[in-house]
Write a protein that binds this DNA or RNA. Sequence first.
RNA 1: UGGGGCGUCGUCAAGCGGUAAGACACAGGAUUUUGGUUCCUGCAUUCGGAGGUUCGAAUCCUCCCGCCCCAG
Length: 358
Amino acid sequence: MADNLFKKKVLVAMSGGVDSSVAALLLKEAGFELTGMTMCLGIRQEEGRASCCGGDAIDDAKRVCDQLGIPHFVFDFAPLMEDLVIGKFISEYVKGRTPNPCVDCNRYLKFGALLQKAIGLGFDYLATGHYARIEQKDDRWRLLRPEDKNKDQTYFLYPIKKDDLPHVLFPLGGMKKDEVRARAIEAGLHVAQKAESQDICFVNEGGYRKYFEERNVSLPAGDIVDRTGKVLGRHSGIINYTIGQRSGLGISAKAPLYVLGFDATGNRVIVGDKEDLFASGLTVGDLNLLTNDLPEEVDAKIRYRKKPARCRIIKESDKLRAIFFEPQESITPGQAFVFYSDDEVLGGGVIENVIHSE
RNA sequence: UGGGGCGUCGUCAAGCGGUAAGACACAGGAUUUUGGUUCCUGCAUUCGGAGGUUCGAAUCCUCCCGCCCCAG
């Protein structure tokens, strides 16, 4: 493997942050023929805000590339970003669902259009600074959770196609975040102390609701009701709410109220107690399977930063039905359902419906 | 305008002479490559108003104001 290393061409996607910069650094040190690239996503950035894309990102990435002595290019992905990620983000919310734009960015951009472009340009690999591992074991390529379980980003990476796994590199998969930052400092990278990126990258101060306002995306106001249909208050349009949401309802009650779901025909938001949030199963669409033989039971996550929960899965044509051993809180259509066997991601998809009994 | 009851934070609500609990809501912060959750912090010098009794009152007395109920 070391023999071929020098001939392998890698395109490293650089956001201008610490992680992707160190990823580039490591690949450079490993002797790959490296090219740095930053996606221009057409995003205007507020001062002092850290993000995975846009803003000063390009300048920062370029400086790191200069320091590493590798070429740097900017690819224009703004139109695709608008159509596939932001457009879907908005249309999903309008439908009363809660999208996960980071998953879609990976699905359509990074490991979709960008990866295809890289391969088309003759690169052997696309590398990113994600915390995840890809390994070939037993003649199969596997997407695995990283060494740093606290930074595990596999939940966002499930859309990578099985056949593309051999073309993707995650140099940080075996490292802890602390080590990455230490490495950046040691190498004198100017981005070493940059803050973690967080929040939706195309949304600035004020959150996504303000973003909708700025883009003139709005839906009519309506009633907030309890499960019996009793009117408790008013909502400002279904796009401003998501299942499990507590704050922003403006209703005082004996105990906090949570959004249980939506009544589309009546344009109503249904709220209830925390215990009403639990459901036993769900159905999944937009499946991406990373293995050919699915086990009957898996450990699955219905949201980022949550411990996987045991469930039974049943494949139904191009969909999946999952029934949890223990009821799960706030299962939300539009969010990702990602399932694992130990550290391996077996696949994932988008939650379509919630199953309340079974 | 005869009788009875009640007025404490945006809402609900403790307090019953000893110097304003709590919950919900709200705001800020922490956590986080989505949204949501969660966690931490803040939030009535003042108890419908005005007098009075008392060392001391939201708590007792008087009057006024505003609600509610039962008879009308």
